[in-house]
């Protein structure tokens, strides 16, 4: 049973961002089920990730629970091979072992944005960490078509002086894009006494594309932010869906505190493999060095995709098939254009 919780790496596979509401998280879990083509049952953690916290707070941990509700195995990182052994020990061997290809998973790509990425250059975010933000949700209000991602460098989190990243990322769930005929996104920060910022307002540059989906990003210097003070951020933007543009105004409260459930975003230090590195990673398993891969030369997760790439069904991945696999794995890890 998979327990769906906060995103470990926002923006890494597709352009998914942390959901703000339970409905959005449920939609994520349903999308994940669709993407993986799986029929296994899932659970969805509450928005405060309480089950994840109660079970050791790891992104991909695994537990085996016995019929009395007692934990009989645990590991920090899920391992399908080991869990199979666990169940053989606990329950007994099965007559027929289910192999990944027996599952016939109908894998589909992540949700794409409704417009191309455009030409606005992203702000580098290496070494930045997410901080706690509270969107002011209003059940009768507009959708959060664009969601704030707020990150800070360690000096700001620890001592109140450093870099503050504000990024407004379109949520692919809501199918909106920016349109250059509309007013650019603008934000305003309301800071209490004692907070000193390099800017308290900002307006995003315009993209030259008619429609685009690039995040609207800002990097501020914070000269002083006492840990017990919060900053209010109000943002106004026009999010355009298929038939109309929605003028939206939304508010957040920012705290100078690391968000332990925020995940590491792609450009904030989580490394995405290049095509060459992905190819090398796949070929690392090529034990006999013939430049081809048989299933046993791949790791268990890669093995589950073996048949998807063995186009001529000869049981061997040849050079062109390895190339296609590497291209698709790299593409799925990159933000969709």
């Amino acid at each position: 049973m998979l327990v769906y919780k906060s995103l470990a790496h926002p923006e890494l596979v597709g352009t998914y961002v942390q959901p703000f509401t339970l409905d959005e998280r449920l939609a994520h879990s349903q999308q994940a089920i669709k993407e993986l083509g799986t029929t296994m049952p899932w659970l969805v953690d509450q928005m405060d990730n309480r089950l994840k916290h109660a079970l050791g707070d790891r992104p991909n941990s695994e537990y085996v629970i016995d019929p009395l509700g007692k934990i009989v195995r645990k590991r920090a990182w899920s391992n399908p091979g080991e869990v199979r052994k666990d169940l053989e020990e606990l329950v007994g061997k099965v007559k027929k072992t289910t192999l990944p290809e027996d599952l016939k998973l109908n894998v589909v790509p992540p949700l794409a944005q409704s417009a191309p990425k455009g030409d606005l250059a992203p702000i580098p975010r290496a070494g930045l960490f997410p901080i706690v933000i509270k969107p002011q949700l209003d059940k009768d209000g507009d959708l959060f078509y664009a969601k704030l991602r707020c990150e800070a460098d360690p000096p700001l989190i620890d001592e109140g002086k450093g870099k503050l990243y504000l990024g407004f990322h379109l949520d692919p769930l809501h199918r909106a894009h920016w349109n250059k005929l509309q007013k650019p996104l603008r934000f305003e920060l309301t800071a209490p006494e004692g907070v000193k910022l390099s800017a308290t307002t900002g307006e995003s540059p315009k993209s030259s594309s008619e429609n685009d989906s690039a995040p609207r990003e800002f990097l501020l210097d914070v000269n002083s932010w006492p840990a017990d003070k919060t900053i209010q951020l109000t943002v106004a933007y026009d999010a355009c869906t298929e038939d109309l543009c929605h003028s939206v105004k939304q508010t957040y409260v920012l705290s100078r505190q690391r968000d332990q459930d925020g995940g590491r975003a792609k450009s904030a230090g989580f490394r995405v493999l290049t095509l060459e590195q992905m190819t090398q990673r796949l070929l690392a398993g090529d034990k006999n060095g013939d430049g081809k891969l048989i299933k046993e030369e791949l790791n268990s997760i890669q093995q589950s995709r073996f048949l998807d790439y063995d186009f001529n069904k000869d049981g061997v991945l040849e050079k062109d098939e390895i190339q296609t696999m590497a291209e698709q794995l790299t593409a799925s890890a990159e933000s969709k254009e």
Partner: peptide, 30 residues
């Protein structure tokens, strides 16, 4: 013992997992 949800949004109590062996694995879209 906690309450979580099914993907359809129905409440689900972890206590209801009793009665059979269950593998719980944490994961997400990314």
């Amino acid at each position: 013992e906690l309450t979580v949800y099914t993907p359809e949004g129905k409440e689900f109590k972890t206590a209801d997992l009793r009665g059979h062996y269950t593998v719980l694995t944490f994961g997400c879209l990314t």
